[in-house]
Design a protein around this nucleic acid. Structure first.
Ligand SMILES: [Zn+2]
Ligand SMILES: [Zn+2]
Ligand SMILES: [Zn+2]
Ligand SMILES: [Zn+2]
Lengths: 164, 164
DNA sequence: ACGCAACTGTTATATCGTTACATATGAATC
DNA sequence: GATTCATATGTAACGATATAACAGTTGCGT
Protein backbone atom coordinates (compact mmCIF):
# COMPACT_ATOMS: atom_id res chain seq x y z
CA UNK A 1 0.00 0.00 0.00
CA UNK A 2 1.17 3.49 -0.78
CA UNK A 3 -0.08 5.51 2.13
CA UNK A 4 -0.58 5.27 5.89
CA UNK A 5 -3.85 3.71 7.01
CA UNK A 6 -6.39 5.75 8.91
CA UNK A 7 -5.46 3.83 12.00
CA UNK A 8 -1.79 4.80 11.75
CA UNK A 9 -2.75 8.44 11.67
CA UNK A 10 -5.23 8.33 14.53
CA UNK A 11 -4.87 11.42 16.67
CA UNK A 12 -5.13 9.33 19.82
CA UNK A 13 -2.35 6.91 18.87
CA UNK A 14 1.31 7.78 19.01
CA UNK A 15 2.36 8.36 15.42
CA UNK A 16 4.90 10.18 13.31
CA UNK A 17 2.98 13.39 13.12
CA UNK A 18 5.58 15.20 11.05
CA UNK A 19 5.00 12.62 8.37
CA UNK A 20 1.22 12.73 8.91
CA UNK A 21 1.20 16.46 8.43
CA UNK A 22 3.53 16.60 5.47
CA UNK A 23 1.51 13.90 3.75
CA UNK A 24 -1.73 15.84 4.22
CA UNK A 25 -0.16 19.05 3.01
CA UNK A 26 1.38 17.36 -0.01
CA UNK A 27 -1.93 15.72 -0.88
CA UNK A 28 -3.62 19.12 -0.81
CA UNK A 29 -0.98 20.60 -3.07
CA UNK A 30 -1.26 17.73 -5.50
CA UNK A 31 -5.02 18.00 -5.54
CA UNK A 32 -4.91 21.75 -6.17
CA UNK A 33 -2.45 21.24 -8.98
CA UNK A 34 -4.61 18.55 -10.52
CA UNK A 35 -7.85 20.47 -10.25
CA UNK A 36 -6.64 23.96 -11.01
CA UNK A 37 -7.31 25.26 -7.50
CA UNK A 38 -5.20 28.00 -5.96
CA UNK A 39 -3.64 27.29 -2.58
CA UNK A 40 -3.03 30.96 -1.83
CA UNK A 41 -0.86 32.15 1.10
CA UNK A 42 -3.82 32.64 3.45
CA UNK A 43 -5.30 29.25 2.54
CA UNK A 44 -1.97 27.46 2.89
CA UNK A 45 -1.32 29.19 6.19
CA UNK A 46 -4.66 28.13 7.62
CA UNK A 47 -4.19 24.58 6.38
CA UNK A 48 -0.75 24.43 7.97
CA UNK A 49 -2.10 25.78 11.24
CA UNK A 50 -4.79 23.10 11.27
CA UNK A 51 -2.32 20.37 10.42
CA UNK A 52 0.07 21.42 13.16
CA UNK A 53 -1.85 19.16 15.50
CA UNK A 54 -5.07 17.15 15.55
CA UNK A 55 -6.72 19.72 17.80
CA UNK A 56 -9.86 21.42 16.54
CA UNK A 57 -9.29 25.16 16.12
CA UNK A 58 -11.88 27.91 16.00
CA UNK A 59 -12.02 30.44 13.21
CA UNK A 60 -10.95 33.21 15.56
CA UNK A 61 -7.97 31.25 16.84
CA UNK A 62 -6.88 30.90 13.24
CA UNK A 63 -7.59 34.57 12.60
CA UNK A 64 -5.26 35.50 15.47
CA UNK A 65 -2.50 33.53 13.79
CA UNK A 66 -3.19 35.14 10.44
CA UNK A 67 -2.89 38.53 12.13
CA UNK A 68 0.45 37.63 13.69
CA UNK A 69 1.63 36.50 10.28
CA UNK A 70 0.39 39.70 8.64
CA UNK A 71 -1.89 37.79 6.32
CA UNK A 72 -5.16 39.47 7.24
CA UNK A 73 -7.04 41.20 10.01
CA UNK A 74 -10.78 40.66 9.58
CA UNK A 75 -13.01 37.58 9.97
CA UNK A 76 -13.76 37.14 6.26
CA UNK A 77 -10.16 36.23 5.45
CA UNK A 78 -10.30 33.17 7.67
CA UNK A 79 -13.86 32.17 6.80
CA UNK A 80 -13.02 32.34 3.11
CA UNK A 81 -9.95 30.19 3.60
CA UNK A 82 -11.97 27.71 5.66
CA UNK A 83 -14.76 27.64 3.07
CA UNK A 84 -12.19 26.76 0.45
CA UNK A 85 -10.50 24.08 2.54
CA UNK A 86 -13.75 22.47 3.65
CA UNK A 87 -15.37 22.64 0.20
CA UNK A 88 -12.40 20.83 -1.29
CA UNK A 89 -12.02 18.26 1.44
CA UNK A 90 -8.75 19.56 2.94
CA UNK A 91 -10.40 20.35 6.27
CA UNK A 92 -13.60 19.49 8.11
CA UNK A 93 -15.91 21.40 10.39
CA UNK A 94 -16.69 19.80 13.74
CA UNK A 95 -20.32 20.79 14.24
CA UNK A 96 -20.44 20.17 17.97
CA UNK A 97 -17.56 22.55 18.51
CA UNK A 98 -18.06 25.12 15.78
CA UNK A 99 -14.38 24.44 15.06
CA UNK A 100 -12.21 23.01 12.33
CA UNK A 101 -9.69 20.20 11.82
CA UNK A 102 -7.31 19.42 9.03
CA UNK A 103 -8.15 16.33 7.02
CA UNK A 104 -5.64 13.52 7.21
CA UNK A 105 -7.18 11.29 4.56
CA UNK A 106 -5.90 12.91 1.45
CA UNK A 107 -8.55 14.66 -0.51
CA UNK A 108 -10.12 11.62 -2.07
CA UNK A 109 -13.84 11.74 -1.56
CA UNK A 110 -14.69 10.22 1.78
CA UNK A 111 -17.41 10.42 4.37
CA UNK A 112 -15.74 11.26 7.64
CA UNK A 113 -16.82 10.56 11.19
CA UNK A 114 -15.09 12.05 14.21
CA UNK A 115 -14.04 11.12 17.72
CA UNK A 116 -13.90 14.40 19.61
CA UNK A 117 -12.27 14.61 23.05
CA UNK A 118 -14.21 17.12 25.12
CA UNK A 119 -11.19 17.76 27.28
CA UNK A 120 -8.25 18.30 24.92
CA UNK A 121 -10.32 18.93 21.78
CA UNK A 122 -8.19 16.56 19.77
CA UNK A 123 -10.11 14.98 16.94
CA UNK A 124 -9.58 11.60 15.30
CA UNK A 125 -11.09 11.08 11.91
CA UNK A 126 -12.62 7.75 10.97
CA UNK A 127 -13.71 6.85 7.48
CA UNK A 128 -17.38 6.03 7.40
CA UNK A 129 -18.29 3.29 4.97
CA UNK A 130 -22.01 4.07 5.18
CA UNK A 131 -24.38 6.08 7.34
CA UNK A 132 -26.36 4.10 9.94
CA UNK A 133 -28.93 1.82 8.32
CA UNK A 134 -31.82 3.15 10.40
CA UNK A 135 -31.23 6.60 8.97
CA UNK A 136 -31.00 5.65 5.33
CA UNK A 137 -34.01 3.36 5.70
CA UNK A 138 -36.14 6.16 7.06
CA UNK A 139 -34.84 8.55 4.42
CA UNK A 140 -35.80 6.19 1.62
CA UNK A 141 -39.18 5.43 3.13
CA UNK A 142 -40.08 9.12 3.29
CA UNK A 143 -38.49 10.37 0.07
CA UNK A 144 -35.84 12.36 1.88
CA UNK A 145 -32.74 12.92 -0.27
CA UNK A 146 -29.66 12.77 1.95
CA UNK A 147 -26.84 15.04 0.82
CA UNK A 148 -24.43 15.10 3.75
CA UNK A 149 -24.16 13.06 6.92
CA UNK A 150 -22.53 14.29 10.09
CA UNK A 151 -21.32 11.69 12.58
CA UNK A 152 -19.50 12.91 15.66
CA UNK A 153 -18.76 11.04 18.88
CA UNK A 154 -17.95 13.15 21.90
CA UNK A 155 -16.14 11.65 24.84
CA UNK A 156 -12.77 11.41 26.54
CA UNK A 157 -9.57 10.17 24.98
CA UNK A 158 -7.45 7.67 26.89
CA UNK A 159 -4.90 10.26 27.94
CA UNK A 160 -7.49 12.68 29.29
CA UNK A 161 -9.21 9.89 31.19
CA UNK A 162 -5.90 8.95 32.75
CA UNK A 163 -5.28 12.58 33.74
CA UNK A 164 -8.64 12.72 35.53
CA UNK B 1 -48.16 -1.75 21.25
CA UNK B 2 -49.20 1.23 23.29
CA UNK B 3 -47.77 4.15 21.38
CA UNK B 4 -47.27 5.33 17.85
CA UNK B 5 -44.17 4.06 16.11
CA UNK B 6 -41.41 6.41 15.12
CA UNK B 7 -42.44 5.97 11.54
CA UNK B 8 -46.01 7.09 12.23
CA UNK B 9 -44.70 10.32 13.69
CA UNK B 10 -42.18 11.08 11.00
CA UNK B 11 -42.14 14.79 10.24
CA UNK B 12 -42.04 14.07 6.52
CA UNK B 13 -45.08 11.80 6.51
CA UNK B 14 -48.62 13.02 6.80
CA UNK B 15 -49.69 12.25 10.35
CA UNK B 16 -52.08 13.34 13.05
CA UNK B 17 -49.84 16.00 14.45
CA UNK B 18 -52.28 17.09 17.12
CA UNK B 19 -52.01 13.63 18.57
CA UNK B 20 -48.24 13.58 18.00
CA UNK B 21 -47.83 16.78 19.92
CA UNK B 22 -50.19 15.97 22.75
CA UNK B 23 -48.49 12.61 23.23
CA UNK B 24 -45.07 14.23 23.49
CA UNK B 25 -46.31 16.85 25.89
CA UNK B 26 -48.07 14.26 28.06
CA UNK B 27 -44.97 12.09 28.11
CA UNK B 28 -42.94 15.03 29.36
CA UNK B 29 -45.45 15.77 32.09
CA UNK B 30 -45.50 12.15 33.17
CA UNK B 31 -41.73 12.01 33.22
CA UNK B 32 -41.47 15.19 35.30
CA UNK B 33 -44.03 13.84 37.73
CA UNK B 34 -42.17 10.55 38.02
CA UNK B 35 -38.75 12.09 38.45
CA UNK B 36 -39.59 15.09 40.59
CA UNK B 37 -38.76 17.60 37.85
CA UNK B 38 -40.54 20.93 37.58
CA UNK B 39 -42.11 21.78 34.23
CA UNK B 40 -42.32 25.50 35.01
CA UNK B 41 -44.27 27.97 32.84
CA UNK B 42 -41.26 29.04 30.79
CA UNK B 43 -40.15 25.44 30.24
CA UNK B 44 -43.63 24.29 29.30
CA UNK B 45 -44.04 27.25 26.96
CA UNK B 46 -40.79 26.50 25.15
CA UNK B 47 -41.66 22.82 24.90
CA UNK B 48 -45.07 23.67 23.46
CA UNK B 49 -43.52 26.05 20.95
CA UNK B 50 -41.12 23.35 19.79
CA UNK B 51 -43.90 20.77 19.55
CA UNK B 52 -46.10 23.07 17.50
CA UNK B 53 -44.37 21.72 14.41
CA UNK B 54 -41.38 19.58 13.51
CA UNK B 55 -39.43 22.62 12.42
CA UNK B 56 -36.14 23.36 14.17
CA UNK B 57 -36.33 26.66 16.05
CA UNK B 58 -33.46 28.87 17.17
CA UNK B 59 -33.11 30.05 20.73
CA UNK B 60 -33.85 33.64 19.72
CA UNK B 61 -36.99 32.66 17.83
CA UNK B 62 -38.19 31.02 21.03
CA UNK B 63 -37.10 34.05 23.03
CA UNK B 64 -39.27 36.28 20.86
CA UNK B 65 -42.25 34.10 21.67
CA UNK B 66 -41.45 34.17 25.37
CA UNK B 67 -41.35 37.96 25.17
CA UNK B 68 -44.75 38.12 23.47
CA UNK B 69 -46.11 35.85 26.18
CA UNK B 70 -44.57 37.99 28.92
CA UNK B 71 -42.53 35.08 30.23
CA UNK B 72 -39.11 36.66 29.98
CA UNK B 73 -36.97 39.16 28.12
CA UNK B 74 -33.34 38.10 28.22
CA UNK B 75 -31.48 35.22 26.53
CA UNK B 76 -30.85 33.24 29.72
CA UNK B 77 -34.54 32.46 30.17
CA UNK B 78 -34.66 30.53 26.94
CA UNK B 79 -31.24 28.92 27.25
CA UNK B 80 -32.14 27.70 30.73
CA UNK B 81 -35.40 26.25 29.51
CA UNK B 82 -33.61 24.58 26.60
CA UNK B 83 -30.89 23.21 28.88
CA UNK B 84 -33.59 21.64 31.01
CA UNK B 85 -35.52 20.20 28.07
CA UNK B 86 -32.43 18.83 26.34
CA UNK B 87 -30.87 17.45 29.54
CA UNK B 88 -34.04 15.53 30.26
CA UNK B 89 -34.64 14.30 26.74
CA UNK B 90 -37.72 16.41 25.95
CA UNK B 91 -35.95 18.27 23.17
CA UNK B 92 -32.80 17.91 21.07
CA UNK B 93 -30.27 20.30 19.68
CA UNK B 94 -29.57 20.08 15.95
CA UNK B 95 -25.86 20.79 15.80
CA UNK B 96 -25.73 21.70 12.14
CA UNK B 97 -28.32 24.40 12.63
CA UNK B 98 -27.63 25.62 16.14
CA UNK B 99 -31.36 25.07 16.61
CA UNK B 100 -33.74 22.91 18.60
CA UNK B 101 -36.53 20.40 18.02
CA UNK B 102 -39.04 18.83 20.35
CA UNK B 103 -38.58 15.13 20.96
CA UNK B 104 -41.37 12.90 19.73
CA UNK B 105 -40.11 9.66 21.25
CA UNK B 106 -41.29 10.03 24.78
CA UNK B 107 -38.52 10.59 27.23
CA UNK B 108 -37.27 7.06 27.42
CA UNK B 109 -33.55 7.02 26.91
CA UNK B 110 -32.81 6.84 23.22
CA UNK B 111 -30.04 7.76 20.85
CA UNK B 112 -31.54 9.97 18.20
CA UNK B 113 -30.46 10.61 14.65
CA UNK B 114 -31.97 13.33 12.50
CA UNK B 115 -33.03 13.98 8.95
CA UNK B 116 -32.78 17.75 8.51
CA UNK B 117 -34.30 19.44 5.47
CA UNK B 118 -32.06 22.36 4.50
CA UNK B 119 -34.97 24.11 2.84
CA UNK B 120 -37.89 23.97 5.28
CA UNK B 121 -35.84 23.11 8.38
CA UNK B 122 -38.24 20.36 9.33
CA UNK B 123 -36.56 17.59 11.26
CA UNK B 124 -37.47 13.92 11.44
CA UNK B 125 -36.10 11.95 14.32
CA UNK B 126 -34.93 8.38 13.84
CA UNK B 127 -34.01 6.08 16.68
CA UNK B 128 -30.43 4.95 16.36
CA UNK B 129 -29.85 1.40 17.49
CA UNK B 130 -26.08 1.78 17.53
CA UNK B 131 -23.47 4.19 16.26
CA UNK B 132 -21.66 3.17 13.06
CA UNK B 133 -19.39 0.19 13.61
CA UNK B 134 -16.31 1.89 12.16
CA UNK B 135 -16.59 4.56 14.82
CA UNK B 136 -16.98 2.29 17.83
CA UNK B 137 -14.23 0.04 16.52
CA UNK B 138 -11.79 2.91 16.31
CA UNK B 139 -12.89 4.19 19.72
CA UNK B 140 -12.24 0.82 21.35
CA UNK B 141 -8.92 0.39 19.58
CA UNK B 142 -7.64 3.72 20.88
CA UNK B 143 -9.16 3.76 24.36
CA UNK B 144 -11.55 6.57 23.53
CA UNK B 145 -14.64 6.55 25.78
CA UNK B 146 -17.66 7.61 23.74
CA UNK B 147 -20.25 9.54 25.73
CA UNK B 148 -22.58 11.02 23.12
CA UNK B 149 -22.98 10.43 19.41
CA UNK B 150 -24.40 12.99 17.01
CA UNK B 151 -25.84 11.71 13.73
CA UNK B 152 -27.44 14.24 11.42
CA UNK B 153 -28.31 13.89 7.76
CA UNK B 154 -28.82 17.08 5.82
CA UNK B 155 -30.73 17.07 2.57
CA UNK B 156 -34.07 17.83 0.99
CA UNK B 157 -37.41 16.43 2.00
CA UNK B 158 -39.74 15.09 -0.69
CA UNK B 159 -41.99 18.14 -0.56
CA UNK B 160 -39.15 20.63 -0.94
CA UNK B 161 -37.68 18.64 -3.80
CA UNK B 162 -41.05 18.73 -5.54
CA UNK B 163 -41.26 22.50 -5.03
CA UNK B 164 -37.88 22.99 -6.68
C1' DA C 1 -2.31 45.72 -22.88
C1' DC C 2 -7.03 44.10 -22.09
C1' DG C 3 -10.73 41.92 -19.88
C1' DC C 4 -12.68 38.75 -16.79
C1' DA C 5 -12.90 35.85 -12.89
C1' DA C 6 -11.10 34.85 -8.64
C1' DC C 7 -9.26 36.55 -4.61
C1' DT C 8 -8.59 39.98 -0.86
C1' DG C 9 -9.48 44.32 2.19
C1' DT C 10 -12.55 46.63 5.12
C1' DT C 11 -16.63 48.12 7.61
C1' DA C 12 -20.46 46.89 9.63
C1' DT C 13 -23.77 43.74 11.35
C1' DA C 14 -26.17 39.37 12.29
C1' DT C 15 -26.57 35.27 15.00
C1' DC C 16 -25.74 32.17 18.83
C1' DG C 17 -24.54 31.59 23.64
C1' DT C 18 -22.47 32.69 28.54
C1' DT C 19 -21.01 35.10 32.95
C1' DA C 20 -22.13 37.14 37.02
C1' DC C 21 -24.82 38.51 40.49
C1' DA C 22 -29.22 39.85 42.51
C1' DT C 23 -33.92 38.29 43.63
C1' DA C 24 -37.76 35.17 44.13
C1' DT C 25 -40.06 30.81 44.85
C1' DG C 26 -40.96 25.94 46.45
C1' DA C 27 -40.78 22.55 49.70
C1' DA C 28 -38.81 20.35 53.71
C1' DT C 29 -37.77 21.03 58.52
C1' DC C 30 -38.09 23.16 63.03
C1' DG D 1 -45.97 29.72 60.90
C1' DA D 2 -40.91 30.80 60.66
C1' DT D 3 -36.44 29.06 59.02
C1' DT D 4 -33.68 27.23 55.73
C1' DC D 5 -31.81 25.54 51.62
C1' DA D 6 -31.95 24.30 46.88
C1' DT D 7 -33.88 25.53 42.68
C1' DA D 8 -35.48 28.78 39.50
C1' DT D 9 -35.83 33.46 37.54
C1' DG D 10 -34.56 38.62 36.43
C1' DT D 11 -31.28 41.61 34.40
C1' DA D 12 -27.15 43.73 32.49
C1' DA D 13 -23.27 43.10 30.26
C1' DC D 14 -20.41 40.51 27.35
C1' DG D 15 -18.27 36.81 24.45
C1' DA D 16 -18.02 33.79 20.47
C1' DT D 17 -19.26 32.49 15.84
C1' DA D 18 -20.44 33.90 11.19
C1' DT D 19 -22.14 36.79 7.19
C1' DA D 20 -23.37 40.87 4.08
C1' DA D 21 -22.00 44.24 1.08
C1' DC D 22 -19.00 46.60 -1.69
C1' DA D 23 -14.55 48.31 -3.10
C1' DG D 24 -9.97 47.15 -4.61
C1' DT D 25 -6.38 43.88 -6.32
C1' DT D 26 -4.28 40.06 -8.60
C1' DG D 27 -3.60 36.09 -11.85
C1' DC D 28 -4.20 34.63 -16.25
C1' DG D 29 -5.83 33.72 -20.88
C1' DT D 30 -6.42 36.46 -24.87
ZN1 LIG E 1 -0.91 13.28 12.98
ZN1 LIG F 1 -8.31 14.23 25.36
ZN1 LIG G 1 -46.02 15.45 14.44
ZN1 LIG H 1 -38.29 20.41 3.34
Amino acid sequence: MNHASAFDMDAFRPHDHGRCRRAARAAAERECQARGLRLTPARAFVLDALLESHRAMTAYELLDRLREAGLGKQPPIVYRALDFLVANGFAHRVERLGAFVGCVHGADDHRAAFLVCRSCRQVAEAVLEAPPAALTAQAEATGFAVERVTVEAEGLCERCRADA
